[in-house]
């Protein structure tokens, strides 16, 4: 169990690294696009569409690591006034809600990519990539996030110390 939990932790952190560099890659691709258009009169057909695809995955797959490091933006106005016991209870409630939300998102999010895959639907744009590529990001990311939330829930219930709040800038 312990080993499984730390494996999931490691996956979340490595994914986050990949996501960070995915944003970096988007920057390179779009910079290239501008240069190609202005200096070579040759706009690409892939830069915009691949950027959007990478962007969707990078954003969603960063969610588990953010949860693990308490990086999601939360309202702490009430919880900071509470004692440690009440704070733990609030955290359990919050994590429970996240688990439920993830289950619903995976359940209903799987239909669109499945349907697109079976019907061979493509994006219909100039690059014309399969539609399920981007659609599968939803069930995948929420499955991972849900798993992470279950692990954090169990940790919290077993009395692990509450993680400090990492304030994410707007």
């Amino acid at each position: 169990m312990q080993a499984f939990a730390s494996l999931i932790d490691r996956i979340a952190d490595h994914l986050a690294q990949l996501c960070g560099w995915a944003y970096f890659t988007i920057g390179l691709m779009l910079g290239f696009e501008v240069i190609a258009r202005y200096f070579f009169n040759a706009p690409t057909i892939w830069a915009e569409e691949l950027s959007r695809l990478l962007f969707i995955f990078a954003t969603l797959l960063a969610a588990p690591a953010l949860l693990r490091h308490n990086g999601h933006i939360r309202v702490t106005a009430l919880t900071v006034l509470m004692g440690p016991g009440a704070q733990r209870l609030m955290r359990l409630l919050a994590l429970g809600f996240v688990v439920a939300f993830c289950c619903v998102m995976v359940w209903y999010g799987k239909d669109a990519p499945l349907n697109s895959f079976l019907r061979g639907r493509s994006s219909g744009s100039m690059l014309d990539i399969p539609a399920w590529w981007s659609q599968s990001a939803v069930p995948l990311a929420f499955a991972l996030l849900g798993l992470q939330a279950v692990i954090e829930f169990i940790r919290c219930a077993l009395g692990a110390p509450l993680p400090p709040d990492a304030h994410a800038p707007e």
């Binding site: 009169n41 040759a42 706009p43 057909i45 219909g124 744009s125 100039m126 014309d128």
Partner: peptide, 15 residues
């Protein structure tokens, strides 16, 4: 759209 893009391509333009 994809095929309008192809058309411009075929005529030597940059869609």
């Amino acid at each position: 759209g994809k095929w309008l893009g192809e058309w411009v391509n075929v005529l030597g333009g940059a869609p």
